[in-house]
């Protein structure tokens, strides 16, 4: 199968590989897919609680080159966006940007799902923080894989 140059670029030089501290209240984690389907994406965002801007995004993906590229691209796009803006990212944007063939559209769907799951996790954490104001937010720890 021929891959587009952009897919190859993300595969060869994946952006923002790594993990953020999933216990931090500022971090939202989305894990979608299943090993038996051949792809699992973990996408994490760290949000500035003051202004709602996504300051950092990291991913790890088990999957084909198009799945890796879709999640790598998603992290690039997330950084600097507000959470509300991030929710506007559609799988079709990823398909167009990476020139994914029809058999790989599910990779872009998975990336969109991962973004939504990460944001939903972040919002749930924020909501429970409001519900239980006594809880101290943990220091943001970052583990990055070189």
């Amino acid at each position: 199968m021929a891959y587009s140059d952009k897919v190859l670029d993300h595969y060869n030089n994946p952006r923002n590989v790594g993990s953020l501290d999933k216990s931090s209240a500022s971090v939202g984690t989305g894990m979608v897919g299943a090993p038996e389907c051949g792809d699992v994406m973990k996408l994490q965002i760290r949000v500035n609680d003051e202004n709602g801007i996504i300051e950092d995004a990291k991913f790890k993906t088990f999957g084909c080159g198009s799945a890796i590229a879709s999640s790598s691209l998603a992290t690039e796009w997330l950084k600097g966006k507000t959470v509300d803006e991030a929710l506007q990212i559609k799988n079709t944007d990823i398909v167009n940007e990476l020139a994914l063939p029809p058999v790989k559209i599910h990779c872009s769907v998975l990336a969109e799902d991962a973004i939504k799951a990460a944001i939903s996790d972040y919002r749930n954490k924020q909501a429970s923080k409001v519900a239980a104001p006594a809880a101290q937010p943990e220091a943001v720890k970052e583990q990055t894989v070189a």
Partner: peptide, 16 residues
């Protein structure tokens, strides 16, 4: 494997 969330989970001791 550095990119793989599964490998990371296994290394953290999670039974997949």
């Amino acid at each position: 494997r550095e990119l793989s969330p599964l490998y990371e989970m296994v290394k953290e001791g999670i039974d997949l």
